[in-house]
Each structure stands twice: as structure tokens, then as C-alpha cells.
Amino acid sequence: MTSLDKPPIGTSTVKWRFPDIHPEGRKYVLIAAAIALVSLWVWDVLTWPLIFVTLGVAAFFRDPVRVTPVEDGVLVAPADGLVTMIQRVSLPPELAGPHALGTEPMVRVSIFMSVFDVHVNRTPITGTIRHVIYISGKFMNADLDKASDENERQHMVVEDRDGLRIGFTQIAGLVARRIVAFVKPGDMVVGGQRIGLIRFGSRVDIFLPEEYGAQVILGQRTIAGETIIARRGIQNVAGVAQ
């Protein structure tokens, strides 16, 4: 190999590969695959549809590698999905108070995840988990505003090294029937780290401190752990509903 054939310093060959299946979903993939296999002997006309169902379950629980921006003063998206609401709201009771996010209204960015999106959620900032609060509730459409107050949900608060606290909420939807947390109070997390999962369609809300401006707009799609959702010291890129 001549010097002209050598790749530039600092580069390497990268190959695409199928995303891993998160351990939380592997048992569901195995169950779906087993049912498809049994159908070969029971009623083979269902085999191909069940194979597609198995592939769909595997795709739902996919857990791709993400590259989180290494930058101070940014919050990254906690979920893959569609930005459906950006509005100033009163804090949920579980996130209000001096030991959580305070008492003043905050800008809430809501990200809706369809069954086709990755459902592994990630922390928007590096810090320490201060609160993990699970609340049972209904299973109405997660795209509705009142789902924040009535659906099954799980609130989390993470505090950075400067004492700034960021709150976000995992909300179950029409099909979702369980919210799973991978962390507990006192755990140290790195921005973009996996912190939980919601099974089969849902929504995640993130509450922005006053010093952070939303850097996404309605209708934009976000990638968990990669999309910068807010910046410190920057105004909102679009008007915030009051």
C-alpha cells in the first residue's frame, strides 16, 4: 500500500449493522417467534403473518447506538419521536416544590412516540438522578394534553454538577402498558445514557428551565440522545404557546 492508498489519519472503516434488541424486549421477541413456529403445526396459514409480527416486535425493542453531543449548556432529546407541543405550563405536583423544579411555570416540550419509533429513553443531561416517581393511571391517547395528568406516568429529575435540575416525564399511551426505569435515585448518569423504556407507543415531556431556550419546533422529529432540544442562554427558535 502506497502513501496515497492509506486512509487519512484519524479515520477508520465503519460498517452498518442491525441495531441490538434491548434485553427488556428479548423475551417478547422469543415468545412471538415461538408462537410463529408452533403455527407451522397448528395452522400454517398464520405462519407468515406471525413472522412479520415477530419482526415488528424486534423492531420495536431495537436499541441503536447514539452519539451524544459533547457540549456544555445543551439538553438532548430524551426520546425519539415527533414534537407535538411546546407550551408554558404549570408543573405537575410531583415535580413542583423546592426539592424538585420549583413553583414557577416552565416550558414543556412534548415528544410523541409512535409504535415505529425507538422506545428506549435517555437522560437529557449529565448528573445525578434525584427523583423517580411512578404514578398509575389511565391509558388514553398520549397525544392529548390531559394525558400528562391522567395517564400512567413516571417522573424523573436529574441534577447537574452546578445544581441545575431538569425534569422529564414518561407517559404511557393507548397501547403502552408498562413504563420501565433503568435508574434509581442517587444514580450518576451521563448525557444520552439510557434511563428507561415505555412499551408500545407513548410520550415523553421535558420541562425547560428559564435559562434554556427550546431549539426544536412543532412537527420536528427528534432522536433520543442526539438532537439538541434546548440551549442555555438562547431564545426559543419559535413562539411558545402560553
Results as ranks from 00 to 15, higher is better:
residue 11 T to N: 09
residue 97 G to L: 11
residue 123 T to G: 07
residue 14 V to C: 06
residue 59 A to H: 06
residue 110 S to M: 08
residue 121 N to M: 02
residue 89 V to L: 05
residue 164 L to D: 12
residue 103 T to K: 01
residue 210 E to D: 15
residue 174 L to G: 04
residue 68 T to D: 08
residue 7 P to M: 12
residue 187 D to E: 11
residue 30 L to N: 11
residue 93 P to S: 15
residue 73 G to C: 04
residue 164 L to W: 01
residue 232 R to F: 07
residue 172 A to G: 11
residue 45 V to C: 02
residue 15 K to M: 05
residue 12 S to W: 06
residue 135 I to G: 00
residue 18 F to V: 12
residue 139 F to W: 10
residue 45 V to F: 02
residue 107 V to T: 14
residue 187 D to P: 07
residue 214 A to L: 07
residue 158 V to E: 01
residue 16 W to M: 09
residue 139 F to E: 13
residue 12 S to L: 11
residue 162 D to L: 12
residue 52 F to V: 14
residue 110 S to Q: 13
residue 159 E to K: 06
residue 209 P to F: 11
residue 155 H to K: 13
residue 185 P to N: 08
residue 224 A to G: 15
residue 94 E to K: 10
residue 152 E to K: 14
residue 140 M to G: 02
residue 17 R to H: 13
residue 196 G to D: 09
residue 159 E to L: 03
residue 60 F to N: 00
residue 155 H to L: 05
residue 220 Q to I: 13
residue 211 E to T: 12
residue 96 A to I: 11
residue 173 G to F: 03
residue 15 K to G: 14
residue 57 V to I: 12
residue 51 I to Y: 03
residue 26 R to Y: 03
residue 109 V to H: 02
residue 149 D to Y: 08
residue 213 G to N: 14
residue 195 I to G: 01
residue 26 R to C: 09
residue 127 G to Q: 07
residue 8 P to A: 12
residue 15 K to P: 00
residue 72 D to R: 09
residue 122 R to N: 07
residue 143 D to T: 10
residue 242 Q to D: 15
residue 61 F to P: 00
residue 47 T to L: 06
residue 162 D to R: 11
residue 160 D to H: 08
residue 219 G to I: 13
residue 203 R to D: 10
residue 220 Q to P: 07
residue 81 G to W: 01
residue 114 S to A: 07
residue 206 I to D: 03
residue 84 T to H: 12
residue 239 G to W: 09
residue 117 D to C: 06
residue 154 Q to D: 09
residue 112 F to T: 03
residue 73 G to V: 11
residue 88 R to S: 13
residue 175 V to T: 15
residue 9 I to R: 15
residue 54 T to N: 01
residue 201 G to T: 08
residue 21 I to F: 07
residue 129 I to R: 05
